[in-house]
């Protein structure tokens, strides 16, 4: 089935051009970083690298992968992302499930939701949060990175609203078959909510992968830094006007190729995750499950 009208052709062509340009805008910076990471230091200093490496070398990658700190923080980053995402999704789905029930089944639901929403609008601020985490003896543990952000109210509300769109009949059918709440959540709600779970997991994952500031404040030793914190400390340059420059620091602010390599490796895991989650971004199977 093909539309041969002139207007349709014009639309297709301009649409293709527009979308290609758009994707080019997204891909080019990445390509620049990639070719910078494979270029020689001299070429990087002179800023003559565009989208193809000049003076091809893998030095930057050898240096990066041989760097214990980088590997260590990469591991912490992965650990934090995995634990944080699993934990956060568990808490969020369970909370959303209970709060999605009607007031008759769950008296006081409104109050709980208000309490949750309240934390969205007001937070304790940096210092009280720090005091809390340190008094709980979480400093220097992975939990200081995952627990404070475990309850994402925003995600919970999205999830809650998704759950409310699920027809009650599904749930009732399960109850009739003798299922309890946990069973209903696990065997009925979760399977039909894969799209929203995939989306929210991705949000959470990206959030954990990118957050750096909590690493700085809750870790008293760089060994505990997640990758984002490490990269931040690598890439943000110091103001040198008032500090003495040592030969070692000259070496540091000149190694743009190594920085590029680290940025690229740092972006890789999330890039890889996208296609795997893509298949869940399809409509759920709710449609057609209920005949009335």
């Amino acid at each position: 089935m093909r539309y041969r009208s002139r207007g349709y052709t014009v639309f297709t062509v301009s649409n293709t051009i527009f979308l290609s340009l758009l994707s080019l805008i997204c891909v080019l910076p990445l390509l620049h970083v990639l070719s910078l990471s494979f270029s020689s230091r001299a070429a990087a200093t002179a800023n003559i690298v565009n989208f193809w490496p000049i003076g091809f070398t893998t030095d930057a990658y050898v240096k990066t992968l041989g760097n214990e700190m980088f590997i260590q923080s990469l591991w912490v980053g992965v650990e934090r992302t995995v634990i944080g995402t699993v934990l956060s999704m568990a808490v969020v789905t369970m909370a959303a499930y209970s709060l999605s029930k009607s007031v008759h089944k769950f008296p006081g639901r409104q109050i709980y939701i208000w309490i949750f929403v309240f934390t969205m609008l007001f937070s304790g601020g940096l210092i009280p949060s720090y005091i809390l985490v340190s008094k709980l003896h979480l400093i220097d543990t992975i939990w200081s990175l995952v627990l404070p952000s475990a309850v994402s109210v925003w995600n919970m509300i999205l999830m809650l609203n998704f759950f409310r769109t699920i027809p009650q009949e599904l749930e009732e059918a399960a109850y009739i078959d003798g299922a309890g709440h946990l069973r209903v959540l696990w065997s009925v709600y979760l399977p039909v909510s894969m799209p929203s779970i995939a989306t929210l997991s991705l949000f959470t994952m990206v959030f954990h992968w990118n957050s750096w500031f909590d690493g700085v404040i809750y870790m008293s030793n760089p060994d505990g830094y997640p990758l984002a914190t490490y990269l931040h400390s690598m890439i943000v340059s110091d103001n040198l006007s008032r500090v003495g420059v040592t030969l070692a620091s000259v070496e540091n602010f000149s190694n743009r190729t190594v920085k590029a390599a680290q940025i690229f490796i740092g972006a890789l895991p999330i890039l890889i995750v996208y296609p795997f989650l893509q298949k869940y971004f399809v409509k759920g199977i709710v449609l057609g499950s209920v005949k009335s």
Binding site: V216, S220, N221, P222, S233, V236, V243
Partner: peptide, 11 residues
């Protein structure tokens, strides 16, 4: 004993 070790002056 080190109370903390950081990698950046701002930190």
């Amino acid at each position: 004993k080190f109370d903390f070790i950081v990698t950046k002056p701002e930190d």
